[in-house]
Design a protein around this nucleic acid. Structure first.
Length: 423
RNA sequence: GGAGAGGUGGCUGAGUGGUUGAAAGCGCCAGUCUCGAAAACUGGUAUGUCGCUUGCGGCAUCGGGGGUUCGAAUCCCCCCCUCUCCGCCA
């Protein structure tokens, strides 16, 4: 959530930043207008309340009953307070409804541009290889008997899939290896969070109210299925004041992610690149604002390290202002090369949300004993998205004889070093 | 799901209508003492919001919401959460 004070005091800067990311006519003027009425109402009703408090206190101090005149006057005052409160309530609600759908402001160094064409490739590692007779995973994996798209469709419908045998095992191996790497090598604390979360939690991360169409929800219990572990990890400290010396907090979680993907109908229809339910390992950090750039770089390095250890070619994109996610102030994407489908697959998206999420869910920290509380920055990044990495491992590992070689680092987890074609 | 108990500041824990935004203890910060530290003593120590002469003042907040009252942490109603016992259950 954007800071109301920023909008009021720095209106033009906020407007410009929002326009940069492609917002059409953000309602900042309306917000400023509502805020000035809001302040007015607070001033008058606080004055009335001060009167009420001092009169009541006087009566109490003098240990007597109020006079009929006092009662009459106080009733009048109370009526005024009540009226002001009601209007204030309405206005605050209006302000909230205008601010909550506003996205985060891009940082200065985020490239100009309104769509993915303006993203900048900042780094690449390895070659865009071409394997003679290479198959895309939907053919390759189906032939190997480790992926069953039809079973997925028959159980649950389009964009659901079933992994079988070594395919399922490979998926689990990837998840375990990544979690171990994050915990053992990078110092993250592993978390197993709830997958069903309250509306407030979903609002805190930025997924509500704007993106409710992409979320699954149980009406009866009013709980929402997480589209990413980021939602739950962001909720871990909501409403809390984090004690001094606890930052940075580094969490990692592997969870299923549930997404309706209505908006993407027709895109990426083949295979398991874009599905309604998938596994993902997610990194999340709470850090001091001054440190957040460094942490963003560190998380990027960690995600790249995973790709390197798997022997995958990748490139790093710095997203332009129009292409970063709603809650993000700056984002890097990592894409790995999939020679079978012949495309770069986005396997990680690493963002700093600065204090956007902390403000939304009222997470604060105390820098040192006795000091003012502040809002931490939150950062998140995939580390990594399992099905897409699964695709890349398969498509890159395919051999002329039809088998697939498993990367060295995964073998202790898979228990096999190749997947053989069916007889 | 049934029965009971409870939710107060960073923590423990008093407080059943009027100098209680909140006792006391712990923790933390500063000072005194000390060569230094500990102990002891003294003072300070919530969050949010509004205003202005930026340090002060007003207001709000004792799980959340509503009500009664001149006045609510305290009384009434609804909801949420935690604990104990019973039931059910992977």
């Amino acid at each position: 959530m954007l800071d109301l004070n920023d909008i009021v005091r720095d209106t033009e800067r906020v407007r410009a930043a929002l326009l940069r990311r492609g917002e059409q006519d953000p309602p900042v003027d309306r917000i400023v207008e509502l805020d000035s009425r809001r302040r007015e109402l607070i001033a008058t009703s606080d004055a009335d309340r001060a009167t009420r408090n001092s009169v009541s206190k006087q009566i109490g101090d003098e240990k007597r009953k109020p006079t009929p005149e006092e009662i009459a006057r106080m009733r009048e005052t109370n009526d005024r307070i009540k009226a002001a409160e009601q209007e204030l309530e309405t206005i605050q609600q209006q302000i909230r409804e205008l601010i909550l759908p506003l996205p985060n402001l891009p940082l200065e160094d985020v490239p100009e541009g309104l769509n993915s064409d303006s993203n900048i490739t900042v780094e690449s590692h390895g070659e865009e290889t071409h394997i003679a007779g290479a198959q895309a995973h939907w053919d390759l994996a189906t032939e190997l008997g480790i992926l069953d798209m039809e079973a997925g469709a028959s159980i649950s419908g389009a964009r659901f899939y079933v992994l079988k045998g070594k395919g399922a095992r490979l998926s689990r191996a990837l998840a375990s290896w990544m979690l171990d790497t994050h915990s053992n090598d990078f110092g993250y604390t592993e978390i197993e969070p709830p997958l069903l979360v309250r509306g407030e939690t979903m609002t805190g991360s930025g997924n509500l109210p704007k993106f409710k169409d992409n979320l699954y929800r149980d009406d009866e219990s009013d709980l929402w299925l997480v589209p990413t572990a980021e939602v739950a990890l962001n909720g871990l400290h909501q409403g809390q004041i984090i004690e001094p010396d606890r930052l940075p907090l580094k969490y990692v979680a592997q969870t299923p992610c549930f997404r309706k993907e209505h908006t993407a109908a027709g895109r990426d229809v083949r295979g398991i690149k874009r599905v309604h339910q998938f596994e993902k390992v997610e990194m999340f950090r709470y850090v001091e604002p001054e440190e957040s750039e460094r942490h963003l770089e560190e998380m990027l390095t960690e995600a790249k390290t995973l790709c390197e250890r798997l022997g995958l070619a990748y490139r790093v994109l710095k997203l332009c202002a129009g292409d970063i996610g709603f809650q993000s102030a700056k984002t890097f994407d990592i894409e790995v090369w999939a020679p079978g489908s012949g495309e770069w697959l986005e396997v990680s998206s690493i963002s700093t949300c600065v204090e956007f999420q902390a403000r939304r869910n009222n997470t604060r920290y105390r820098p040192a004993a006795g000091e003012q509380v502040r809002m931490p920055h939150t950062l998140n990044g995939s580390g990594l998205a399992i099905p897409r990495i699964w695709i890349a491992v398969l498509e890159n590992g395919q051999q002329p004889d039809g088998s697939v070689v498993i990367p060295e680092v995964l073998r202790p987890y898979t228990g096999f070093d190749r997947i053989e074609p069916r007889a």
